[in-house]
Design a binder for these strands. Structure first.
Lengths: 345, 345
DNA sequence: ATAAAAAGGTGAAACGTTACACAAATCCCT
DNA sequence: AGGGATTTGTGTAACGTTTCACCTTTTTAT
């Protein structure tokens, strides 16, 4: 409530000087003056008014983070990690849940832009980011986690992800090595870059092993688009039901994330199948739950802590430096974590 | 980037008029003028600059939400629900992870206050809120979810929660009805209002059934205080290990939240016990995972959607109306959800 | 001794809104 | 016709910072 004016009066200097102190521009300042100002700041419990500062400078140290849903543990964890990483660098994070809906995402970006925020991290990975081009053109820097920056028409300023193909190849190879030939793929709508990539990775590995991919084994979330990620496990459950009642059911299933895998396990059990005796299940992400569930879930781990650090530092770099960011996309390694939900056929 | 000035010029009116339109003060305004202004707003894609508005009015439509950790699915879900509820009322939500650390919480509140935010929802429920009194005095309205407002020294403006005692009594009665007599209690540090209440509820129900509570059966998170909620399941796992290796181990366990229950199930299995055959486990919260895990978890459901709605509307009411809020604390009902992790002894 | 440069500070306009007191035009009543 | 009400709108001073040109005093070089 005390402003710079009072501080200035207390310290016997001008507001400009106070401003200089606050912003660390004291290279050319008598140390005695500096002390007096700091003293006054302390005594008056002065806190800079961020609205005024923002209005004046047109920018603030806040990043937007748009995720499908923080109610999904994977994104919950990522959100937390990103917040921590940003905070280390003096930035705050505004978390938004967009349910993978481009319209909602655009609305959020609009609102963030209106709040002078110029950096946003996207957790969804649509195939095209055209609906955000308008903001990119206006100066919004958009970062993507979980996809690369190819084919994004310049909308994505920087990105980090595992190599989706490699990830699902790892999973598929594991399953094939276990003797599985009929491998299903469970996903919500396959309309995102990462899902398309993971499916492609599975198919290519299948073919490499001389197995012809069976279209009827890929479950692509028909009629579930409204679920968002809010009831993610539900999708896995529905999917496995349909898959298991097929004439020629799969013996193993690869899901596009761990929540689906957890749902799939539950669904399989409800049908009287047991995991991994009757069907092997392999997830994707390696959320914390994966290790403690029953059976512990075999999965592909994404190094989320590392990814969060990288995307935050890249984005801030983009925001703060004028010259082009080198290496706009960085790829991190996925890792196969073998636990008990998969086994030899 | 177009400001009200341009809009005014385009519509041939003054900025005051534009301001009136934006703020819905068009009761006394020629409809034709109104249309002209709206048209100009649309054409210029004008978005009010929230920094300027905030600077001027000294307030913004943003709520702070401080949770232990959004990486914990329970709080992830609550965050999402609160965000949705706030949005319906035109408010944004700033989510902060404080790991139940009063120092971190106070720092967040300070920072929120510095951003002119005057309403904050606390997810933690310490026994005392004295460390926030300073901000309450300065005018910050603090709401609590998961505890009542008694003994908070006027710091808490409004609150919502289940009746903690009733919740754990429900659970305990269920266990006793199943024939259990040695019932353990698993919790992180029992230093929060809700945990104290839940333990008290269990003990009172035990006594009512003529069972003397056994101190050695309450596991209160010694040496795990640094965990925060980040690896919540780990706590349950550690706890059950110690409990099960006691000379006279429990036959049932009540955990203070579902994540601990999940960890406890995992830990029990690792020791060769199976749930519910060898030990019954009952959780608290009813997170989504509870239903799909194996075995499906018996638990006490908190009506989180309802709680979120209530706390948001109460807080906004507190913020917007001048007179005292009626019924500052509202209590919602906990519900016993019987699934498969508990059974007859 | 003098000019130039460096050091240490200052003044005031702007950023984009809001809100209040006031102005002009029109209407209504007696 | 006169005068108050009513309707519809406007001018402008803040809000609390930042920034940049500029001012004064001291130091240094010649």
């Amino acid at each position: 409530m005390a402003g710079m004016k009072e501080v200035a009066r207390h310290a016997g200097v001008s507001v400009s000087t106070v401003s200089n102190v606050i912003n660390g521009r004291h290279q050319k300042m008598a140390v005695e003056t500096l002390n007096r100002v700091n003293e006054a700041i302390r005594k008056l419990k002065f806190t800079p008014n961020s609205a005024a500062r923002q209005l004046k400078t047109g920018q603030i140290k806040t990043l937007g983070l748009i995720v499908p849903s923080v109610a999904n543990p994977f994104w919950g964890q990522v959100s937390h990690l990103i917040e921590t990483a940003a905070q280390k660098r003096g930035y705050q994070v505004l978390i938004c849940n967009a349910e993978r809906d481009p319209v909602v995402e655009a609305r959020y970006v609009e609102s963030l832009f209106g709040s002078s925020i110029r950096g946003v991290i996207l957790g969804s990975s649509p195939e095209s980011f055209d609906y955000l081009k308008e903001y990119a053109d206006k100066g919004m820097k958009i970062a993507a986690i979980d996809r690369d920056n190819e084919g994004t028409n310049g909308v994505i300023a920087c990105s980090v992800s595992i190599n989706q193909l490699v990830g699902s190849r790892l999973a598929t190879r594991h399953l094939i090595g276990l003797g599985h030939k009929r491998i299903a793929f469970i996903s919500g709508p396959i309309g995102t870059n990462s899902r398309v990539g993971r499916l492609a990775g599975m198919n290519s590995e299948l073919e490499k092993a001389g197995i012809t991919p069976d279209e009827s084994l890929v479950w692509g979330g028909r009629n579930v688009s409204t679920f968002g990620d809010f009831r993610a496990a539900e999708i896995g459950r529905t999917a496995i039901r349909e898959l298991l009642t097929l004439d020629n059911p799969p013996t193993a299933v690869l899901t596009v994330n761990d929540m689906y895998a957890i749902g799939a396990c539950a669904g399989a059990r409800e049908l009287g199948y047991s995991v991994p005796e009757d069907i092997s299940v392999i997830g994707f992400d390696d959320i914390m739950m994966a290790e403690v569930m029953q059976p512990p879930l075999t999965t592909i781990r994404q190094p989320v802590a590392q990814m969060s650090e990288i995307i935050v530092s890249k984005l801030i770099e983009t925001l703060e430096s004028t010259d082009e960011v080198i290496e706009p996309h960085v790829e991190v390694s996925a890792e196969l974590i073998v636990r008990a939900s998969t086994r030899q056929l």
